[in-house]
Amino acid sequence: MKLTDIYWHLRSDISKIEKELEATVDAKHPILKKASSHLLKAGGKRIRPVFVLLAAKFGNYDIEKVKQVAVPLELIHMASLVHDDVIDDADLRRGKKTIKSKWDNRVAMYTGDYIFARAIEMTTNCNKPEVHQILSDAMVEMCIGEVEQIRDQYNWNQNFRIYLRRIKRKTALLIAVSCRLGALAADAPRDVQLSLYRYGYNVGMAFQITDDILDFVATEKELGKPAGSDLHQGNVTLPALYSMEHDEELRSFIMKMIKGDKPDKKVMKVIIDKIKASGGVDYSLEVSDRYLNKAYKELENLPDIPAKDSFYQIAQYIGKRKF
């Protein structure tokens, strides 16, 4: 099953979100317009707006109100990707040229800033002060997560706690907030909002861990970028972290081969094969499953409506996805 099959019943409202995204990133300046449009056309799972829409089903669902939350959340995610690509010096995302590659770093940074600004501007249409507070807190935490990732580049001695805190800030938090704000925008009961927030957090952690696993096991065609890109850039993710912790020889080999240089594909393949053989991928899958089980547990507290089944299916998809 494809992810889009799970929320096919939302296709009409997702189409509205897509059109709103196009209208929102439209800019008077020609370069900003082209760069923003290029990013939007690169596609994406639109998983955050989907979580918003599904969460809103637990309250008084009104797409005109809910989109005032769904669109800004996706814009914030998009803007963070543009900045990520500058930091990581990435030429490809989803198999297409990044903005920094197609234009340059300055255009990319200003495009990311512009998209962030448009997201904040759109949230002013929402008359719930709590939405603004939750969203701004999340953006602060995301920025801290990005700075921590820069700080920990090529830090081969970091521990699991540092990694988990970083992916919480980089990925899980925005997914958790998407679930909570969707419910909040639809005036769902507070206990439902908080259950959905915890569900989103656990799914978000599993989502990022799965991403980190795929960086070692998926093909370049599936990833839209070279396999092992994270480690290549000095970003130590869970499979590598586990493997280096349990194999000192492997740690020394990785530290020797990746020193801020860019090893060739043959060397990266050797490193990837060693990480797989040492159990790093299997352990990471176990950790991902633990988070997914916590997500399922949160769903047990929610009313039995179709959106609940969709949340179950999305969590199952994340645990099994190949790219």
Rank of each mutant, 00 (worst) to 15 (best):
A79Y: 02
D152I: 02
Q233A: 05
V270S: 13
W8Q: 08
Y296T: 12
F58K: 09
H38K: 01
I14A: 01
K294R: 07
T24K: 06
V50W: 00
I272N: 08
H246F: 02
M205S: 03
I99V: 15
Y199Q: 08
P72I: 07
I213S: 00
L184V: 08
M255V: 15
F51W: 01
T124K: 11
V281I: 02
T210P: 09
K297R: 15
K2P: 00
I134R: 11
D88A: 06
I162S: 12
R180K: 14
I318Q: 12
L32D: 13
A42V: 02
V281W: 04
Y317Q: 03
E298A: 13
N125G: 04
K41L: 09
W8I: 15
N127R: 08
A307E: 12
L184N: 07
V52W: 10
P49W: 06
E18D: 11
L173Y: 14
I150R: 04
L53W: 06
H132L: 14
I271L: 04
R190T: 10
P129R: 03
Q193H: 01
K168A: 10
Y163K: 00
K265G: 06
F160I: 11
E248T: 07
K322G: 04
T124V: 12
A117T: 09
K225Y: 01
W156Y: 08
N293G: 07
E300D: 07
F216I: 03
I17W: 01
S278I: 03
N202F: 02
A315P: 13
L196G: 05
G280V: 05
H246Y: 13
V287C: 03
A176Y: 00
N235I: 14
H77L: 08
K100Y: 15
D137Y: 12
Q316G: 11
Q208S: 10
Y242L: 01
T210K: 09
L40W: 10
S243I: 00
Q149M: 05
Q316V: 15
V140N: 12
I213R: 09
H29A: 00
N235R: 05
E300N: 11
L181G: 00
K102L: 15
D89F: 04
E141H: 06
T237N: 02
A295V: 15
S136F: 05
D85H: 01
K170C: 03
N125W: 08
L3M: 04
K274M: 13
